[in-house]
Design a protein around this nucleic acid. Structure first.
Length: 930
RNA sequence: GCCCGGGUGGCGGAAUCGGCAGACGCGGGGGAUUCAAAAUCCCUUUCCCUCCGGGGAGUGCGGGUUCAAGUCCCGCCCCGGGCACCA
């Protein structure tokens, strides 16, 4: 257009950024710049980096979605990349790569809508995502990338499953052990079976069943969350509190089904205790603690005729206040406990309006199974019916009525409680509805006017416990219970065993077949993997509430049976038709990154030790969203501990340091009807927001399709370039904080790179302009102060303040009248290199270096340059800033005091006043109290 | 209801151990440059008052500790997240 543009041919803009970035991205790829060497095996090399201290820096790998990335997705990826680059430059062998969590429901949902096979769709999505991530300049070792859907990967997922299947939890040694150990122990009689069974007199089939009941991966008839619309059962964690599926928001029904379970509850205490050793945020630790939900109490047996009803309570001290028992409607003892007719003189609402207890119970059970979780959630009014029978309170022999009620949950404790309305809000409510007795067993304070009293106080109405505070009363009653054989100390958890099967196609097949007895048998390790069949009719069926789950693999008729020789001759076996949940693949991917090409083992021992067993143990930094606070992180810890017990890994925990990055939010706009409008089309006029001449209203939310507020990285490359995008995302705020995206602010980050470029390079010729002179003292001091601050900030993942310091240094350089001194320019480039790697490489090359800046040494501050000769000291009177003086930094407190008194301003303010006190903070501040 | 976070200019944020509140950036205002614009560079920008010297207020609200509080303590309010009849 005009000559002005042509003369700035080498101005740093989006066009030039594009050229530079693509140049270095292909150079890095050709040179294998980000290859991290292993101590042995296929990925060992001669770079010498293996001798450096190792660092394993990891992101939570993404699900390769079809919609592509928006600028919110890579925030954490950029953060780990900057940190990894910083650590490479400070002399570490850094393992940093990226994989794909590619099994799971969305691919099937997509397939159902488009008719495309999930594998094709998944591969296309992964390729697309890899391309997008590469364009950001992320320094990943591409050789180590895996997808959970790779046959070579899920072979080892199946192998780990078999380790769980072939293990049991030894509660005496408190660790997992091979099933073969269990067999020996049973054989020699070291383990006594329950119910008077003996091992030696059991049939072979019974022996198998007994052993199966010990396995860490086991089959159980369990009430599950059956989602007919998705055609699968879901884990508790995949069901919302409204009783709907997290994915798709479909109704979920509870029904009993035979399912694979993982015995994570055996690890509850270790999962809880080992949290202490981890460098994770308290928020996440608290969430995991709550999820595990350990509570200490007692098991108390109540006699009801010839039956025993075990009850779990955290307040055994209140047993003298128990005025009725409640058991869950699904409780197995209900049928035996229920009476044949109502006793005389009972309240009419105890009967539910029925003529006999059996009918009442039957009706109530039906009613409660039909209640959705949402109903239970919203309607906490107490309901229930009397069983028509009574139990005896073990401490004093009182006869108390037994009820069933859905406020007692079968899945927790023993599914039965002793109700103590005096000390429990829920029991109080129930007691009021049914007119039951209320006995206080703890003396409430005089001013107490509430109902149930849960605070501490002396025991009352409690026989031999009277006068004792709660803690003492608990130990006393537990001792009594144990001595009298009426109960024992007991710990209970909210954590349940992990429901591990899904009625889906797109997941790992179980390496399990069934013999003629219908008992599960492990597929021999040497014929793994069990590959997914190429189904034509793979789509899940939408079913109605009453139908049974129907795994799609059942339709692969030539796959669903197989012939295996277990040493007793080739025979036909029926395959397990369920697949594993998405969590399976994500449970151990960090281990495969270490040794991705290993054909013999899931990871070699030597390589695992090298990367995992550092000073702290485990992945050195794991960055990801808080939404995985319980599920992924708990499952992963569980598998890791099993592998640890069995000797396959060397650390008890997988992730030593966890960091939760925040989310990028963006303004979203709604019109009068509440419909979202394209955010990019909204203009601000007089602090009103206008879309197509109509006023719209702003809110903030997660970036995405539904709020129509996505901004893509590609848009940013067109306007600014990848370095600018990286810099902006890191500058917006601390990494762990949510922050709103503002496209108009991105220009600030572009301007920083532009100024750096201009300070080093002639915009017309592209030639470097730095000169080899010694920088003056003040610039040199600022340089070293910046170097120190940036090192500190980088170590603490405070990239926003690191960038601020670099900006200050560059602003100072901009103000120089002379060309930039070479030593300052080189340090500046190195400081920027982790943040903006492409422009740093380009400048580094222009400055005459042949080697990549990726492995250049990060600047280290020289302490002797940090000291200021003169410092500014604020002068306060009564804590208020009144004046400032410049004084030699070597001044003593006395000199500072005198200089402050000599200050005109201070002099005039204190001349006729008495100085009552003087606070001197050496070299920092002086405060006169008058 | 319980358990975690968080509340600082017009906006994103900084202040790491109780020591100058507002670093750095966006946006705004002014200037230089330009035929003009863009770009660039410089100055300015918490609010209120001002006789232009300066003065006063100020980190969600109310108290407190301290020579000194965004930071510590007590009591509230608001926003975000997690859990929720778990005995």
């Amino acid at each position: 257009m005009d000559t002005g543009q042509a003369s700035y041919k080498f101005r740093y803009d989006a066009h030039l950024a594009d050229q530079i970035e693509l140049k270095w991205q292909s150079r890095w790829e050709e040179d294998g710049t980000y290859h991290a060497p292993n101590p042995s095996g296929a990925l060992a090399d001669s770079s010498g980096r293996i001798k450096l201290p190792k660092l394993f820096i990891m992101d939570m790998f993404p699900y390769p979605s079809g919609t592509g990335l928006h600028v919110g997705h890579p925030l954490g990826f950029i953060g780990t990349d900057v940190y990894a680059r910083y650590k490479r430059m400070t002399g570490h062998n850094v393992l940093h790569t990226m994989g794909y969590d590619a099994f799971g429901l969305p691919a099937e949902e997509h397939a159902r809508q488009t008719g495309q096979h999930p594998r094709e769709n998944t591969i296309a999505n992964i390729n697309n995502m890899q391309k997008q991530l590469k364009r950001l300049g992320l320094g990943h070792d591409p050789r180590r990338s895996i997808a959970t859907t790779d046959v070579d990967y899920y072979k080892w997922t199946q192998w780990i499953f078999l380790q769980l299947f072939n293990s049991w939890y030894d509660t005496k040694k408190n660790c997992a052990r091979p099933i073969s150990d269990l067999e020996s122990l049973l054989e020699e009689g070291s383990i006594i079976l329950e119910n008077g069974e003996t091992w030696s007199s059991s049939t072979d089939r019974r022996k198998k069943e007994i052993i199966n009941s010990y396995r860490l991966a086991y089959l159980a008839e369990a009430p599950v969350n059956w989602c007919p619309a998705l055609g699968t059962v879901l884990a508790n964690e995949e069901v919302t509190i409204d009783g709907r599926s997290e994915r798709g928001n479909h109704p979920v029904y509870r029904r009993p089904l035979k399912q694979w379970m993982m015995r994570i509850t055996s690890y509850a205490d270790r999962l809880l205790e080992d949290l202490e050793t981890l460098d994770w945020s308290d928020a996440i630790k608290t969430m995991q603690r709550n999820w595990i939900g350990r509570s200490e109490g007692a098991l108390i047996n109540f006699d009801a005729g010839s039956l025993k009803i075990p009850v779990f309570t955290t307040r055994p001290d209140t047993v003298f206040g128990a005025t009725y028992l409640v058991i869950a409607p699904e409780h197995p003892l209900v049928d035996e406990l229920v009476g044949s007719e109502w006793p005389n003189g009972i309240e009419i609402n105890w009967t539910g309006g029925f003529d006999d207890p059996q009918s009442a119970v039957q009706a109530y059970r039906l009613e409660s199974t039909q209640k959705s979780d949402l109903d239970r959630q919203e309607n906490k009014d107490k309901t229930g019916v009397f069983l028509g029978t009574y139990a005896k309170v073990p401490v004093d022999g009182r006869e108390i009525p037994i009820f069933i009620s859905d406020y007692v949950l079968m899945g927790y404790g023993t599914g039965a409680i002793m109700a103590v309305p005096g000390q429990d809000e829920r029991d109080w409510e129930f007691a009021e509805v049914f007119g039951l007795d209320i006995i206080r067993t703890v003396q409430p304070p005089i001013e107490w006017d509430g109902n149930a009293y849960t605070g501490d106080g002396p025991s009352i109405n409690s026989g031999f416990l009277d006068g004792l505070p709660i803690a003492d009363a608990k130990t006393t009653i537990i001792k009594w219970l144990e001595e009298n054989n009426r109960g024992s100390r007991q710990v209970s958890y909210k954590l349940r065993d992990w429901l591990f099967s899904r009625q889906r196609y797109w997941g790992e097949p179980f390496p399990i077949v069934y013999d003629t007895d219908g008992l599960p048998v492990a597929v021999p390790v040497n014929i793994l993997p069990v590959e997914l069949p190429e189904l034509i009719d793979w789509a899940p069926r939408s079913l109605d509430e009453n139908s049974d789950p129907e795994p799609p693999l059942g339709r692969a008729s030539d796959w669903s049976t197989t012939v295996i020789d277990f040493g007793d001759g080739a025979q036909e076996y029926v395959r397990e038709l369920n697949t594993m949940p998405q969590w399976a693949g994500s449970c151990w991917y960090y281990l495969r990154y270490l040794d991705p090409l290993n054909k013999e083992e899931f990871v070699s021992e030597e390589i695992e030790k090298y990367w995992m067993s550092g000073e702290t143990g485990g992945v050195d930094l794991y960055v990801g969203g808080v939404e995985h606070a319980v599920l992924h992180l708990l499952y992963s810890r569980f598998w890791h501990k099993v592998l640890y017990d069995l000797g396959f890994v060397s650390t008890p925990e997988p992730f030593q340091r966890l960091f939760n990055q925040g989310y990028i939010q963006a303004a979203a706009y709604q019109d009068e009807r509440g419909m979202y409008v394209e955010a990019t089309d909204v203009v601000e006029v007089d602090s009103k927001f206008i879309h197509n001449d109509e006023e719209v209203y702003r809110s903030f939310g997660k970036m995405g399709k539904s709020l129509k507020n996505s901004v893509t990285p590609d848009e940013m490359y067109v306007e600014y370039g990848a370095d600018t995008l990286r810099l902006y995302e890191m500058f917006m705020g601390p990494l762990d904080q949510d922050r709103p995206w503002e496209t108009k602010s991105v220009v600030g980050s572009l301007r920083l790179i532009q100024r750096v470029w201009r300070n080093l390079v002639d915009e017309m010729s592209g030639e470097i302009t730095v000169i080899d002179i010694i920088p003056d003292e003040s610039l040199n001091r600022l340089l070293h102060q910046t170097i120190k601050a940036v090192n500190d900030d980088m170590n603490d993942l405070r990239f926003n303040t690191a960038i601020a310091r670099i900006t200050e240094l560059n602003n100072e350089i901009t103000r120089l009248d002379s060309p930039t001194p070479k030593s300052v320019a080189e340090s500046l480039v190195l400081l920027l290199a982790p943040l903006t790697p492409h422009i740093a490489e380009e400048l580094w090359e222009k400055l005459g270096h042949n080697e990549s800046v990726v492995y250049a040494q990060f600047p280290v501050a020289n302490e002797t340059f940090l000291v200021e000769d003169m410092i500014e000291v604020p002068l306060q009177i009564n804590g208020k800033l009144k004046s400032k003086i410049y004084i030699a930094s070597s001044s003593s407190d006395e000199e500072l005091h005198e200089a402050a008194l000599a200050d005109e301003k201070i002099k005039s303010l204190i001349e006729d006043k008495e100085i009552r006190n003087v606070i001197v903070v050496s070299g920092k501040l002086i405060n006169f109290v008058i």
